[in-house]
Design a protein around this nucleic acid. Structure first.
Lengths: 126, 126
DNA sequence: ATGCATGTTCGAGCGTACTCGAAGTCAAGC
DNA sequence: GCTTGACTTCGAGTACGCTCGAACATGCAT
């Protein structure tokens, strides 16, 4: 898989993928005969995971920590599980907070709708 | 209300509040005899709203647009309602996405837990 | 009158996460 | 053999949202 394919399938740009490799978030890619990056299917799994963690609001620094532990192998599972459990708690919190935000927005919107209705009434009763 | 009070009650720093004023997100504050900012209670309502919109992921540029419309008065309610409705949709989307992320995390965590259990078994059966 | 806390303005700096452009290489098609 | 297009490296630039420090003013307590 070429970088453009991976870019297309992951929704990232080639620039961003190279950036991720540069900072160590992705392993150094294998190269084909002409020095171009050549990805196996497992890479797509990894970038997809990165995408999920990004959606979870995980900063790159923490992904890096996770990635490094992963490379160190099986002995680090507890630490990795810990990272994910903490992140899970934060995500759950974030959902709760967003639901509260939704209520605030709905309240405000209802306020504007009432204003509109009352204007309609003005018009109807004028 | 002094800036330190507003800071304390809003969870922002005085620096941030002045920054918000600088960029137009908050109206120029009234001053007391010695030139210090002196806030009325309505200001706390506005910063609280800003906080909610920040939680909703609204960029400052959009808050600015909203704030400007608000200052222009009643004729702009439709536009303001529109901003909030669009933001509401984005927040709802974001919640859905975070819930999916939660599932991914739970799956991963369950994987690590199984690994642990199987290691326990190894130990027990060794 | 002196110290100390709290305020002021202004501009510069920072952290995060990209994003882009320049300059060069390489393989394929015409 | 020349153009085209996708790739390469490298370093610099951008966008956002603060965050901070310097230098100065003010007002209360000792």
């Amino acid at each position: 898989m070429k970088i453009s394919d991976l870019a297309h399938r992951s929704g990232l740009t080639a620039h961003t993928i190279r950036y991720y490799e540069r900072i160590g978030l992705m392993p150094r890619a294998d190269r084909d005969g002409s020095g171009h990056r050549d990805y196996g299917p497992e890479t797509l799994i990894w970038v997809t995971f990165i995408g999920h963690m990004k959606a979870a609001g995980m900063p790159i620094s923490e992904m890096l920590r996770y990635a490094r532990l992963r490379q160190q192998g099986a002995g680090t599972s507890d630490q990795r599980a810990d990272i994910l459990r903490k992140r899970r708690a934060l995500v759950a919190q974030r959902i709760t907070s967003l639901q509260a935000t939704l209520d605030v927005l709905d309240g405000k919107i209802a306020g504007y709708d009432m204003e509109r209705t009352s204007n309609d009434n003005d018009r109807n009763t004028a």
